[in-house]
């Protein structure tokens, strides 16, 4: 079972990002997909998180994940408010949108994959602050669980009325510019 926790702010699109990745994962052959958003406390701007479980088999346990393999962080400013690495498995992966160099971030022994998704998304033609397609590019670069072309197709489908090509471009740019630290 693969467990991915997505951290963002209410309204930032973490749920949509997780749903895009989940749908691509399902289409690539994971029969078990369960995505559970933070329950009941969604407010625009407040830190929220979403649990995603992937498995070859149907998943029966829909309780929230406690020991993620990967945490995806849509906004580096959340790091001062939330311990995003809580419960992260040894050797786990942090996927981070940050304008800072990798050396500015320390998550103990965890691997770190980062890109300035905010800037790259604007470069791709998206409005300021739309980072949820770009962050998937960073994830795919460092975490080889779902074929990137399937994910791109899903991004295009999800945003079919909202600049699909710019969203795809943001994911591609972020994929290319991602820097990974750790084994």
């Amino acid at each position: 079972m693969i467990q991915i926790r997505w951290h963002g702010r209410g309204g930032q699109g973490a749920i949509t990002a997780a749903k895009i990745f989940a749908t691509a994962a399902f289409k690539s052959g994971y029969a078990g997909v369960v995505m559970a958003p933070t329950f009941g406390t969604e407010r625009r701007g407040a830190p929220v998180f979403t649990s995603l479980k992937l498995s070859e088999e149907k998943i029966y346990d829909i309780s929230p994940i406690e020991t993620p393999d990967v945490v995806v962080v849509l906004d580096h400013l959340i790091l001062t408010e939330v311990d995003v690495a809580a419960g992260l498995k040894p050797g786990g992966l942090v996927v981070l949108n940050t304008p800072k160099p990798l050396s500015a971030h320390d998550f103990g022994g965890a691997r770190l994959a980062a890109a300035d998704v905010t800037a790259l998304s604007v470069e791709a033609g998206l409005p300021q602050g739309r980072v949820n397609s770009g962050i998937i590019g960073v994830l795919c670069r460092a975490f080889d669980a779902v074929p990137f072309d399937l994910v791109l197709a899903e991004i295009e489908a999800e945003f079919k009325t909202k600049k699909p090509q710019a969203n795809v471009q943001a994911a591609k740019l972020a994929y290319e510019k991602t820097i990974v630290r750790g084994a």
Binding site: V34, P37, G40, I62
Partner: peptide
Amino acid sequence: GYLLSHTYMP
């Protein structure tokens, strides 16, 4: 509620 109503699955 929430566990199924707001959780995504295929």
